[in-house]
């Protein structure tokens, strides 16, 4: 389990997070929602170990994050950045192969190459291995990086369950690939991976996330099963909109939002 306890963080004097706790269990897909500037990305950076909290701690498998060896951590936990930038013209295959970095001892094996090809197939880019990264569109690049982090945690390991943290994984993707990305996240959760994704779209959270953590003003406004968290009242309150939930019993519930009156 990836667990954050009572995290506090500030940039200079400006407080960003104030006593945030969160649990990511293996096999669950958790959505992290909140308004702009609520502290979602900062929380994600604390969970990855990129930033260190002023107080509180982050534990993975009950071991504090700083106590993990960087490479061991990278074998079980992958992070999809919000705006991956790469200014060099690698082939798509080589970018995905970078995801195998923590597993490679001397040189990459045939198995590493197979995994990369399968990861590309999974993000619907199976024909793109020989293409150049810089010649792809923004959405295609985003999916290359998704394939890269998938390759990183492709196989289950003995020492720990796997985790995937995604910072706005569907930003910049077309509708079909938004659903495609979250379906992959669901499949990973079904394989036992703990998946956390920052989302903006309430309906994607309602459709895919087992649990939702709603952040507002640097605190957890609500967390728990998605349907319990994303109620009309709470969404209206946190996001300052009118919210109307539609259910027809067969499809996932749908929340319509309107400007606040």
């Amino acid at each position: 389990m990836l667990e954050a306890r009572e995290l506090t963080f500030s940039y200079g004097k400006h407080p960003v997070l104030d006593g945030v706790s969160l649990r990511l269990k293996p096999g669950k897909l958790v959505a992290l929602l909140g308004t702009n500037g609520a502290g979602k990305s900062t929380l994600l950076k604390l969970l990855t170990g990129e930033l260190h909290a002023r107080s509180g701690d982050v534990r993975l498998e009950d071991k504090p994050l700083p106590a993990w060896h960087t490479r061991d951590l990278a074998q079980v936990r992958a992070v999809l950045p919000q705006e991956p930038r790469l200014a060099f013209n690698f082939t798509v295959r080589d970018v995905v192969l970078m995801g195998r970095t923590p597993h490679i001892q001397r040189g990459e094996t045939l198995r590493d190459r197979e995994i990369c090809q399968q990861a590309l197939r999974r993000v619907d880019l199976q024909e793109f291995g020989d293409r150049y990264y810089l010649e792809l569109s923004g959405g295609e690049r985003q999916r290359v990086h998704l394939a890269r982090v998938l390759a990183q945690i492709w196989e289950p390991l003995e020492q720990s369950p796997r985790y995937l943290l995604m910072d706005e994984p569907v930003a910049g993707l077309d509708l079909a690939h938004q659903h495609g990305t979250l379906r992959i996240a669901r499949e990973l959760a079904a394989e036992g991976v703990g998946v956390l994704a920052i989302l903006h779209d309430i309906n994607l959270a309602l459709a895919y996330a087992d649990e939702t953590v709603l952040i507002s003003g640097g605190k957890v406004a609500a967390d728990g099963p998605t349907a319990d968290v994303l109620t009309e009242e709470r969404v209206a309150d946190v996001f300052n909109v009118q919210a109307i939930l539609h259910r027809d019993g067969t499809r996932p519930p749908y929340m319509q939002t309107l400007p606040s009156a």
Binding site: E50, V79, P81, P84, F88, M98, G99, T101
Partner: peptide
């Protein structure tokens, strides 16, 4: 060389790929 490749993705990304 492998660390330098990971570095091209950014420092945070290299760290998340297990590079010291």
């Amino acid at each position: 060389w492998r660390s330098l490749n990971a570095f091209l993705l950014g420092e945070a990304e290299a760290f998340q790929l297990g590079v010291n």
